[in-house]
Computed example of a mutant assay.
Amino acid sequence: MISLDYLAMPPFSINTVFFDSAGTLVEVPPYSRIWHRIMGDLGLDMSLHRVEVGVRYADLTYGKRYFSYAGRTREYWTSYLGFLLAKLKVEGNQSELAEEMCERFQQHPWSSPYPETKRVLRALKRRGFKLGVISNATDDVTDRLEHVGLAKYFDSFTYSQEAKAEKPHPRIFRLALERAGCKPIEAVHAGDSYDQDVLGAKKVGMQPILVDRREKTHTNDCPSISSLQGIEKLIRLLREDQDESPRTE
């Protein structure tokens, strides 16, 4: 159930809905599982646990280096994978293996939309809302959403690599608002992370909506929904509230 009491802005002012990507629009496996599968396809015998440990080291080492690879995402992943293979002490030509792993990674979307995603996006577009994506991601996020048939629903895409800031930093949200041409009070942002999506949206004055698919996060400072179908219900409540509000001529 969604209550309008949670909303921090006049409901009739909302004209733009932003979404996080992974965990909100699409389901994506952990990168360690992706690399483990690709390694297996290439005949590299490696336990998942060993790959997970290597990925933790690679993530700590590379961290936010991807900010400096804007427009060169393939180069970033090749460098990252080269480091990972070296850390795992994989035999053979690690540079060639990194290139092949990157090629296979980029040829496959590695994600799938949640069952309700496309229907909800279509419904919001029919209602006249502008839709945008705000994601902690590299610049191939648009291509990945294109691969699974979602990119066509969105009017704008904002990702951390170009913003050089990750959610919850205000910079990425402000860039998204500027790109969409709307004010904070005219937008809502839906995402599955309280720390990144909810707190980040609040910092710039946007209305957050927590997408808590496993219903494990307990919060009373923003609406919480268990699937994107809740977005439709929320919009319906907003419209009904607007229609029932007294008007002066």
Rank of each mutant, 00 (worst) to 15 (best):
A8S: 15
M9D: 03
P10T: 03
P11Q: 11
F12Y: 13
S13N: 13
T16K: 12
V17L: 10
V17W: 00
V17Q: 01
F18Q: 07
A22Y: 09
G23I: 02
G23D: 00
T24C: 02
E27D: 15
P30F: 01
P30H: 05
S32W: 08
W35S: 15
H36S: 15
R37P: 09
I38H: 02
I38T: 02
M39T: 09
M39K: 08
G40Q: 01
L42I: 05
L42V: 08
L42Y: 02
L44P: 01
L48A: 06
H49N: 12
R50T: 07
R50K: 12
E52L: 04
E52Q: 05
G54N: 04
R56V: 05
A58L: 06
L60V: 14
L60H: 13
T61M: 11
K64C: 09
Y66P: 00
S68L: 14
A70Y: 12
A70V: 10
R72K: 15
T73E: 07
R74D: 14
W77H: 07
T78A: 08
G82F: 00
G82H: 03
F83G: 00
F83Y: 15
L85T: 01
K89G: 08
V90D: 11
G92W: 09
Q94N: 11
S95L: 15
S95F: 14
E96H: 06
E99N: 09
E100H: 09
M101K: 00
F105L: 07
Q107I: 10
P109S: 06
P109C: 11
S112C: 09
Y114I: 01
Y114C: 00
T117K: 02
L121D: 06
R122G: 10
R126D: 09
G128V: 06
F129K: 10
K130L: 11
K130D: 15
L131M: 04
V133K: 04
I134C: 03
T138W: 05
D139H: 05
D140Q: 13
D140C: 11
V141M: 02
V141I: 15
D143I: 05
H147I: 06
V148T: 09
V148A: 11
G149W: 12
K152F: 08
F157V: 02
S160A: 01
E162R: 14
A163H: 00
K164H: 14
E166R: 10
P168S: 06
H169E: 13
P170D: 11
R171S: 13
I172M: 07
R174Q: 15
L175I: 15
L175F: 08
L177I: 12
R179E: 14
C182F: 07
V188D: 05
V188Y: 10
H189W: 06
S193L: 03
Q196F: 13
V198E: 03
L199P: 05
G200V: 02
K202G: 01
K203H: 12
V204A: 07
G205E: 03
G205W: 00
M206P: 03
P208Q: 09
V211H: 01
V211K: 03
R213C: 02
R214K: 07
R214V: 02
E215S: 13
E215Y: 07
C222W: 01
S224G: 04
S226F: 08
Q229M: 09
G230F: 02
E232C: 07
R236W: 14
R236M: 14
L237G: 07
L238M: 15
R239P: 08
R239T: 13
E240S: 13
Q242Y: 14
Q242H: 11
D243T: 12
D243H: 12
E244L: 12
E244G: 08
S245I: 04
